[in-house]
Structures are given as C-alpha cells and as structure tokens.
Design a protein around this nucleic acid. Structure first.
Length: 792
DNA sequence: AAATGACGGGG
DNA sequence: GTGTACGTCATTT
C-alpha cells in the first residue's frame, strides 16, 4: 500500500473487463492514472415493495439500503439501490418504476463520485493505493500549487486559396507556440524569423510539434477554438500526410467527440483547454461584453496592446510570397503569444470554477453556466440531505418553453442619436433579490400565516417563508460571504504586491460572480432541475419594482431616462454635470438594501438607439450602439458579423455605424449607403466582397437552399464537394429564384446587383438608419433629395 | 404560416 | 457517456 499527495486533475470513467470504473488523472511530478473500483453507482426509489439484492432481470443489485432524504421539503423514507455498472442505472430504474418514484438516476458517474467523496478538482488529494487501484481518497485543500503544471499555447496557419481551407487539400503551413519561456514556430519554407525551426515538409512539421509537447512535458495545452479548428485540422492533415498526431502522453492521437453541437477534444495525459469556450462562458454571464469573440477582440479587451491582424483571406498569398512569408510567421507567433497571455489570465478562473462547483476541468468546456449552477446546487443538496430533482423530460421542458414568464422591465428608447449618456447598472440585482426575499422552490407559498404578508411577499402575489432559509438563497449567501472574504484576501495580496496570489483570487471572485449571476437563469431555464416558474416570476417582479423606482428618482432629480432594461438605466446628462449624475447614484445606493448596489457602467459621448417592438413576452430586444470619449464602440443587437453575409453588407453596416457614432452624421451614413448601392449597380464590385460562405452541414436536405443549389450544380459539373465542407457562393443574374441564381465562386460569371442591394446591403443598414427617418427610397433613388430635406 | 437550416470561433 | 446549446434570421415549401 502506498500513500501520496497529488493534484486531482480530472475524473472520468472507463470500461475495463466489462465494468465501468472511476479513473483519476493526477499530477505530482508527472501525470499518472489511478482507478477506483470501490465506488458503485446508485439511485433512489420511494416504495414499500421489497427489493432484494442479487440478480434482477439479469442486472446485479449490489445492495438495497433504507435512508431518509428530504423530498420537496419533507423528510421521507427511500431505498438506495446500488448496482454494479452506471450503464445499468437507467435500465434498472426504469424496470423498477412501477414500484414507486425513482430519483437521482440521471447524475453522471464522475460527478456523483466528486459529490459523494467531497473532492474538488484541482485541489490536492491524499490517496492510498495499491498498484493502480485506489483504497482511499480525501481532499486536503490547495497544498500543491497548480502553477507547477506546464502550460503551452499553440496556433496553426493554413493554406487557403479558396478563402476557406479544405482539410483534405490545403496544407497546414505554420505551427506556432508560446509558454512561460518564450515563443517559436515550426514551418517548412524559409522565412528568416528567429526562434523558427524550418523543416522539410508538412509531415515533419507535425511530428516536430509533437516533439515540442513531449520535450516540454506539457500538462495543459491551450488554443483558441482549438477543439473545433486547430486540432481536428491537424489530425486530418496528419492523416493526409500519413503520420500520427501524437499530442497525448504515450504518443496517442487526440480523440475528437462531437457531442450534440459542441466538439470535445481529449488528449491523453494532458488537459486540453480551449480558451474560446471559457470566453463564451464569460460572455454568456456578461462578465465580458464584446460584440465579437475573435482572438484579437478578446486580446484587446483582456490584455490590451497594439493590433497585429493580417487579412485572413490573403494568408495563402503571404505564404507564396517570399518577402511576406516572414510577416505571416510572425503573425502566427503573435497569435500563439496572445493565446498564452489570455490563457494565463483565464486558466485560474477555470480552476476556481472547477473547485467551486466540483466539476472536472474537462467538463467545464461545453457546460453552460446554467449547468454549473445546477452542479453547485447538486452539491449543496447532497450536503443538506435533499433529494436532487431530475432533469425534466423533453415534453415537460417543451411545455415550460411554451409558457415564458413576464420578464424584466424595459423602457424602450425613442429612436435617434443622443449625446452624453450615463449608464448605470445594478450589481447582482437578481442574486440580492433572491437572498433578501428568500426566493426558493422549497420556501414558496409556505403555510405559515405570518409569512403571507411580510417583506417576502412578491409584487406578483407569491410569498416566501421568513423562517427557514431555502436551498438557493443559502447557496447564494454562502457564495456572497465567500466572495466578501476572498475580496478581503485580494486586497491584502495587492497590498503585499503578491500578484500571483492576486490573480488567483481575482479569478475566484470572477468565478463566483458568474455563478451568482446565473442563478436566476437557472430557475427560469426550462431544462433545469430546479426550474420554478413562480420563483422566476417573483424575482423579475421584484426586479421591475427596484429598477422602476430608480427611474422615477432620476426623473425627480431632473434627469431624462432614455432607456432602461432589466438592471441597467441609461440617462441623458442634458444640462447636468457628471458629478451630479454620480451624486444621484450615491443617493440611490444610500437607500438600497445592503447587498444591492447601483454602479456606473460607463459614460458615453454618443449613442444610437433603435427601438424594436417586443416580439416575445420575455422582453424587448436590445438594439443600440455607443461610443466613449476614447472612441471605444459598443454595439448591441445589430450583429451581422456572420460568414453567411457578404463582405459588402458587413462593411457597409459598420461604416454606417461609425459615421453615426464618430461624427454624429446620419447624412454621411446615408451617403455611404448610396455610394455602395451605386457601386453595386455599376457591376464592378469584385467577387471577394460578394461571396457568401456557408457550411454543408447535412448529408441529405429536405429543401433546396441557395447554397445547396450551387453545390449541386458544381457537382453536376464534376466537382467533388463533401458533407461538412464550407463553400462560398455568389448570387448571379441567371435564373429566377435565389437558389437558381446561386453559383459557387468558381462558376460565378457575374452578380445580381438587385439581390445584393435588396437582400444584403439594405437589410443590414435599414436596421440602423431605418428608424432615423430614412426609407429605402431615399437610398435607391439617389438622384433625388432625401425625404427629410424635402420636408424640412 | 410553418418548416428548414445556418450562424458563432478558427484559416 | 447515469447528457446532447440557443436564440435568431433568411429562404423555401
């Protein structure tokens, strides 16, 4: 028997000799694996029927134990049925369903293990083991610093003569990487860039990159969107040049699993961390607010610094041009460095998230924040002896989807261009409402007389118990208290100038903020275990009251409330000063409950507001664009930055927004659109600006779309296009319907200017200038005066 | 009006 | 892996 302490990197399960057992990935000096055969899967059933251990219809029941669990607030006797393999849980629980209601049969085996054993991923564990098998395991805190792990970030560049690279034909040309010691690249043509190894060909480049991973003993490999692009592409290229992509320890190739809509990459013996997933989580939780989440945009936001972008579509030209090849390699290295810098900043967050909610790192990518909050509540329920509710069936979830609740308060803006806008945000509005009014599925409409009228009576009529704290409020309260503590520690660390500790603590605070902000969403999310329409409605009802109250106060003080949505208020400075606005904020905060705070989001020099009628009852759409004094633009709701829109439509839209925000000139905006329309009409717009890209995602289609029509025509001409390919097409003059007119770039002889004007440029810009008084006629009949000047 | 199918990131 | 995003938009039927 041996005893060791190590970092618990990952927990998953493997099937060996017909039995599924827990596998632990641990790190001490190197990574190593251990297996736990002592842990068995189980579920609960509420029944008086006798259930015996032994074989039941071919499934082995290992034990049946009577236990007491709290179900919907009531203590009840249930039977804990343990069987030998997690794959049998579903089958067995279904077979026993006629005996009584079954519970906790849809909790993943590795999550169950972490919850039941009280283990936190990325913490240090003490294990006793014999051979490869665990005898006992326990959490001993954060003894071993996760920064002892070896990190490396990478990026690849790919030849792309067709705009979008085709993995069977277009070679990978550069692999760049960065870690704490610096950065470098591997390529296979001379480029004269230092720290760059030039090998003979693509195959050698791939092999060399695998060597770099091995030599650096990389524990955590990070990339930007690497699960979807870099790793699958490299794997396909390795295949094409007859080598193996040995990214894993033990020279294994990465496993690429497409799970639903997300792609997971598993690299044996290493953690694969796709920064992009984390960024999306931060974005969903509104911890970062960006219009796009490209590597460059994210870098600018999180790290800052100069731009380094190259035009993606010219990558193949740079590669072919000896003089520009060096620039391309330097660009690749810069991408890898940027990825590494972002990784350094974000990995602590991933670690803290894993610790906080007890889900393994590998499961964080691909989890929604709602699932994370669920994970937290599952742990909390286990500790309290509460039965964990099941996920709703598809049918039940659909029922819930069909009945959306009354959402937040929205005051729609009068469309137009405004100057000097002050934006205030409520910090943690919903979490504070939940704790201060004890909003919870287990405390709602309790039977105590005195609870029916007090402070916990929501404006929509529901009331919440004033005696017993609910599960959700207590989880939030723990988090808020923990956050307070960590914030104090953070201050201390900053005073001592311990930046390493400060960054970990910062990440911990951010992780808690994300979780906190998602709790409401989880109560309102139809697929959630703790979905509660009544709770969600009560929260928004309280929220509406608080926000409207601030709006009323602002108007009383003589400010104009331009726009208000959920937890934010946009006020016009008018003839008042910034100081007066801040004074107002202070005054509001003075009267708010302790956990609630109105914060200054920013002050904007100019803003464009477009009002859109409510489409669903859940709320109106946010549609605005703002610019700060420093020229930083913030855009909401105009998103047209997608590859299935032509460049000309996207470029014109951005130019129009900029003209309005930077110069405040709608006349100039109109002129930009007129010029574009004229240029399209002239027939002289180059192909590149007209291409619409789209992916052929299915093998069989039910309807003939433009892209499919273009592909079928190309196929009939002998071109080979596989499912999954991303194709570029242009709408030409030949044909009647859009589909008939669509041709792949290679076959497009002309373009249909009417289509590009009416279906690309105008829809893109009318969203913006349409409500500023211009009509399509103002643009199209460009010889005439605009209608506005006719009237004025 | 309903159904179908694509977007995100990466090159 | 004791699972299977999501909210929105254009085009076709």
């Amino acid at each position: 028997m041996s005893k060791k302490q190590a970092i618990l990197i990952d927990v998953d399960s493997v099937t060996k000799n017909g039995r599924t057992i827990i596998r632990l990935i641990l790190k001490r000096k190197g990574m190593f694996k251990l297996y736990d055969r002592t842990f068995y899967p189980y579920f609960y059933i509420e029944t008086e029927e006798r259930i015996e251990k032994g074989l039941y219809n071919g499934i082995e029941i290992i034990s049946v134990e009577e236990v007491v669990k709290k179900i919907e607030g009531q203590e009840r006797k249930v039977k804990k049925v343990t069987c030998s393999d997690p794959r049998e849980i579903q089958v067995l629980s279904k077979m026993l369903e006629s005996f009584g209601k079954t519970y906790e049969k849809d909790i993943r085996f590795n999550r169950r293990y972490l919850i039941d054993k009280g283990l936190k991923p990325m913490n240090t564990v003490e294990i006793e083991y014999e051979g490869k098998f665990v005898k006992s395991i326990r959490d001993v805190g954060e003894k071993i610093d996760v920064n002892t792990l070896n990190f490396l970030s990478f990026d690849i560049e790919v030849y792309n003569p067709y705009g979008i690279p085709r993995e069977d034909e277009d070679q990978a040309i550069i692999i760049s990487y960065a870690n704490k010691d610096g950065s470098g690249a591997i390529t296979w043509k001379n480029c004269g860039v230092k720290n760059t190894k030039v090998v003979k060909n693509e195959k050698e480049m791939i092999d060399e990159f695998c060597n770099v991973l091995r030599e650096n003993e990389v524990d955590v490999l990070s990339g930007y969107n690497s699960s979807v692009f870099d790793i699958p592409y490299l794997k396909a290229r390795a295949n094409a040049v007859k080598t193996k992509l040995k990214l894993g320890r033990g020279d294994s190739s990465p496993k690429i699993n497409k799970v639903g809509m997300t792609t997971h990459v598993k690299i044996e013996g290493r953690v694969h961390s796709d920064i992009y997933y984390l960024i999306r989580i931060l974005a969903a939780a509104q911890a970062i607010k960006l219009q796009r989440h490209t590597l460059e945009e994210v870098y600018k936001e999180l790290i800052g610094g100069p731009e380094w972008k190259v035009d993606m579509l010219s990558i193949y030209q740079m590669w072919d041009d000896e003089k520009r090849r060096g620039d391309l390699v330097r660009y690749g290295i810069k991408d890898a460095e940027a990825t590494y810098e972002i990784f350094e900043k974000i990995f602590p967050l991933q670690v803290e998230m894993a610790r906080l909610i007890k889900i393994p790192l590998s499961m964080i990518s691909g989890s929604t924040t709602g699932q994370m909050v669920e994970a937290l509540l599952m742990d909390e329920s286990f500790k309290r002896g509460y039965m964990i509710p099941s996920r709703p069936s598809g049918y039940a979830a659909n029922e819930r989807y069909s009945k959306p609740i009354q959402g937040a308060y929205v005051k729609l803006p009068q469309p137009g261009i405004y100057e000097n806008i002050v934006v205030f945000d409520f910090r943690s509005l919903y979490p504070s409402i939940i704790t201060s009014h004890n909003i919870d599925p287990y405390t709602i409409n309790c039977t105590h007389k005195e609870c029916k009228t007090g402070a916990n009576k929501a404006p929509n009529g529901n009331h919440f118990c004033t005696k017993t704290q609910g599960l959700v409020p207590s989880a939030i309260k723990n988090l808020l208290e923990l956050r307070k503590k960590v914030k104090a520690e953070l201050k201390n660390a900053e005073k001592k100038e311990d930046w390493k500790l400060a960054s970990t603590l910062n990440a911990r605070v951010a992780a808690m903020k994300i979780i906190l902000n998602t709790v409401y969403g989880m109560l309102n999310y139809p697929r959630s275990r703790w979905y509660s329409r009544e709770c969600a409605e009560s929260i928004t009802a309280f929220g509406r009251e608080y926000v409207q109250e601030v709006g009323r106060k602002a108007e009383e003080k003589g400010f104009n409330v331009l726009y208000s949505d959920t937890d934010s208020i946009f006020i016009l400075l008018g003839n008042k000063t910034q100081e007066e606005a801040l004074e107002f904020m202070k005054d509001v905060n003075h009267h708010l409950p302790e956990t609630m705070e109105l914060e200054l989001e920013n002050i904007y020099k100019r803003g464009l507001f477009v009002s859109k009628k409510q489409e669903k009852e859940t709320g109106a759409k946010k549609k605005y664009a703002l610019i700060t004094k420093e020229g930083k633009i913030k855009i909401r709701g105009f998103e047209l930055v997608r590859r299935d829109w032509s460049k000309i439509a996207k470029d014109t839209q951005l130019a129009v927004l900029k003209a309005i925000l930077e110069e405040g000139s709608r006349e100039k905006a109109l002129q930009i659109v007129k010029d574009t329309v004229q240029r399209l009409s002239s027939g002289k717009v180059p192909k590149e600006e007209l291409v619409i890209y789209t992916q052929l995602r299915k093998a069989n289609y039910e309807v003939l779309s433009p892209e499919l029509s273009a592909v079928e025509k190309a196929r009939s001409r002998g071109m080979n296009i596989a499912t999954g390919a991303i194709i570029g097409y242009i709408i030409t003059k030949k044909g009647k319907t859009v589909s008939e007119k669509a041709e792949l770039i290679d076959f497009a002889a002309d373009y249909d200017s009417e289509y590009y004007i009416d279906h690309q440029v105008l829809p893109a810009v009318m969203k913006i200038i349409g409500e500023l008084g211009y009509t399509e006629e103002d643009i199209k009949y460009s010889g005439k005066q605009g209608s506005l000047s006719d009237w004025m």
